[in-house]
Design a protein around this nucleic acid. Structure first.
Lengths: 345, 345
DNA sequence: GTGAAAGCGCTAACAT
DNA sequence: ATGTTAGCGCTTTCAC
C-alpha cells in the first residue's frame, strides 16, 4: 500500500450509540428507539440515524444490551461427541433454526469433561445464556439438582429420549418402536437368529433400541438368548462385536447394530473374515448417516429426522425462554431406510 | 412431588456479587478481588467469600464482566459446511483447545448465507466477541474491507490456504505439495493416465491441489490433457465425475479426487458400473475422514493434522487477541495414508 | 417526538 | 486490606 504509514493503525475503537447520536444530532434514546424500530419516530429522523449508523459502521455491543435486557439471545448447545456425524448434522440445523429466530449459538463439547457442563448451568442461572439444548442423555448434575428443587429452566433435550417426569422438555423419536420395526423387517426378509449389538447399557437410546429388538423377537417367537452382544457407538465397538458374532457356535443370520457407525465397523470386520453381507448375514444400523448410502453394502437403517428435530427443539426452547412453554415430550415420526445390507436381491 | 406447591416456582433470580458481598460482610470490590484471586486478601476472608459464593450458587454474569473488561473470552468459529466431516472434527479440537485456555466458542454456519458472516464482523469490531476463526477460504466482505484499510483484527484462518499478503494469520498444510506427493504415489504404483476430479475452481484448496497434480504429472512426463474433470467436494460431485471418467475414450488408470467425500461418490459409481478399484483403476482422496478407513476399498488419502491445526489456530488467535501476534502463515506437516484403493496387492 | 437520567453487574482506580 | 466510586454501552421509564 504505497504511501501508507507502515505503523499498524490502532484498532480504532468501535463507535457506540453515543457516537451515532452525536452524528445524527439526537440523543442516545432516540437512536436506540429508531434502531429498534419503535413506532413514533418520523421517517426523516429514522433515515438520518440509519445513515449515520451505516456510515460509522455501528454495531450494538451485545454485552451492554444483554446486561440491560437480561437476555442474551444466545442458546448453548451441549454436545457429547462431535466425532459422531449425527451431532454435527443436528448442529447444522440447530444453528440454522436459531439464526432464523434471532439467536446465536454457543457450543460445548461435553465428551471430554462432564463437569464442564456444570459451569454452563451457572451461566444459565446467572443470565449469561438464555437456554440450553441438550443433545444427549447426559444432564449436568447441577442442572438435575436445580430442576429437582423445582426451578423452571429453559432446557430442551433432543436426539436422546428423556425419561418422563424429569422436568425437561424433549424432542425425540420413538426409539423403541423404530428398533422394533427394523428388527421386524429383518425377520421379514427371513432372518431367524438376529443378534443385537447394543450400545452402552446406561444410555437411554441404547436401552430403548434394545427393548425394541427384544419385543420384536418375542412377538415372532424368535429366540433372543445369547444373541445380545454388548457393544458401543463407535466403529471399533462394532468391530469388536463382529468378533463375538464370528465366535458364536450357531452363526446368526442377522445383526441389528445400535447405530450406523458401529455397523460400519461390524460389517467391515465381517467382510474381512470372508462373510458376505447380506448373503450370509444381514445387517442393519440406526441413524442413517450420510455415508450409509455409499457404504458397501449400502446400509439398512432408521432415518432420524434430524432437521425436524433441530427445528422443533429450537422452537420449543425459544418458547420456553420467552415464558410460554411446557416441559412436554414431542415425538417425531421416523422412517425405515431399507438398503442392500439387509436384502439379498 | 408430594406436598410441593404445584405452582411453578418463579425462576429465582440469580445472586449477584452484591448478594455475596452482603452474605460475607464485605464490599463488592473485595468479593471481586477474592474471586479473581488477587494477592492481598487474607486467607480467612477469601474462604468466607468463597463459601458464601458457593452456598448462594453464585456465578458471575458474563455480560457485565465483558462490558466492563471489553473482552468476552469468546471466539467465533465460522464454518462453511458442517455436513463435511472435516469441519466437525476440527471444531471438536478447536472447542477443546479454546476451553483449555479459557475461551468459549460461538459458531456460525456460513454455508447457507454468506452475508451472515458480515454481521459478526460488526460484532467483532463492537467488542461482542474477541476473535474469529475462519475454517475456510471465505472471508466476509466487510472483514476484507477493514483489513484492507489497515485495521488490525484478531482473525486466524485454518484448513484453507490463505493467500499471502491478506493480513490474516493462517494455520495450514502445504496443500500443493501434499497433492503432488499423492499423485507421485499413484504414478509410483504404475498409473499412467491419472485423472484429477477437481474441486470448485475458485476455492484455494482446490486450486492448490490441482496445481500439485499438474506438477507431479509434468515432472514425470505424464500427460494431463483431457484428464482434468471439474467436480466438487460432495459425494454427488464425485458421482458425476465418475460418469465423465467412464465416458472417456481411453480409460484412465488412476483418479485423484479433490477430497475424500467426492471420492466416495466416485468410487461408488465406478463400482456400480462394474469397474474394480484398485484393480482397474486406482483412486485417492484427500482429508482422511474417519470413514475412509472402512470404505470399500479403504481409501488412500492425505491426513490433515486437524487436531494440531486446531490447537495451533486457537493458540495463535489467543495471542492475537492478547496483542502479541503476527499475521504470518504457519505450515504444519501432512501425512500420506496409503490404503488399498491405490494398490492392488 | 425527544431528552435526561437511572441502572443492569461487574472491575479498577483511587482512596483510606 | 478493604471500601467508595465511576463507568463500560445499552434500554427504558419519566418528563416535557
Amino acid at each position: 500500500m504505497p504511501g501508507r504509514d507502515p505503523s499498524r493503525i490502532p484498532n480504532a475503537k468501535a463507535p457506540t450509540m453515543a457516537d451515532i447520536a452525536r452524528l445524527a444530532g439526537v440523543s442516545t434514546s432516540t437512536v436506540s428507539r429508531a434502531l429498534a424500530g419503535a413506532p413514533r419516530i418520523p421517517e426523516e429522523t429514522r433515515q438520518r440515524i440509519a445513515r449515520a449508523a451505516q456510515d460509522a459502521g455501528y454495531a450494538p455491543n451485545r454485552h451492554a444490551r444483554s446486561l440491560r435486557l437480561k437476555r442474551s439471545r444466545v442458546m448453548l448447545v451441549l454436545i457429547p461427541d462431535l466425532a459422531n456425524p449425527n451431532f454435527p448434522d443436528l448442529l447444522m440445523h440447530i444453528d440454522r433454526a436459531a439464526y432464523d429466530c434471532g439467536y446465536d449459538i454457543m457450543i460445548a463439547h461435553t465428551g471430554v469433561d462432564l463437569h464442564r457442563s456444570d459451569r454452563y448451568v451457572d451461566e444459565l442461572l446467572a443470565g449469561g445464556i438464555d437456554g440450553v439444548l441438550l443433545t444427549a442423555d447426559h444432564c449436568p448434575p447441577k442442572l438435575a439438582e436445580r430442576i429437582a428443587s423445582g426451578v423452571h429452566l429453559p432446557i430442551v433435550r433432543t436426539l436422546s429420549p428423556t425419561p418422563p417426569g424429569t422436568g425437561i422438555a424433549g424432542v425425540e423419536i420413538d426409539e423403541r418402536r423404530a428398533a422394533y420395526d427394523l428388527v421386524a423387517h429383518l425377520a421379514g426378509v427371513g432372518c431367524r437368529r438376529i443378534v443385537h449389538a447394543g450400545g452402552p447399557p446406561a444410555e437411554p437410546v441404547a436401552i430403548a433400541r434394545r427393548k425394541g429388538w427384544e419385543a420384536a423377537l418375542a412377538d415372532r417367537g424368535l429366540c433372543a438368548d445369547g444373541l445380545y452382544v454388548q457393544s458401543g457407538f463407535r466403529m471399533e465397538d462394532g468391530a469388536a462385536a463382529a468378533h463375538h458374532v464370528l465366535a458364536m457356535n450357531l452363526r446368526p443370520d442377522g445383526v441389528f447394530c445400535t447405530n450406523d457407525e458401529s455397523a460400519y465397523g461390524l460389517v467391515t470386520t465381517l467382510k474381512a473374515s470372508g462373510l458376505r453381507v447380506p448373503e450370509d448375514i444381514a445387517v442393519a444400523g440406526f441413524d442413517d448417516l450420510g455415508f450409509s448410502a455409499v457404504f458397501d453394502p449400502p446400509l439398512t437403517t432408521v432415518r432420524l429426522p434430524r432437521r425436524e428435530m433441530a427445528v422443533a427443539a429450537v422452537a420449543r426452547l425459544k418458547r420456553l425462554i420467552e415464558g410460554d412453554g411446557e416441559a412436554s415430550i414431542k415425538i417425531l415420526p421416523h422412517e425405515l431406510v431399507l438398503r442392500r445390507s439387509s436384502q439379498c436381491t
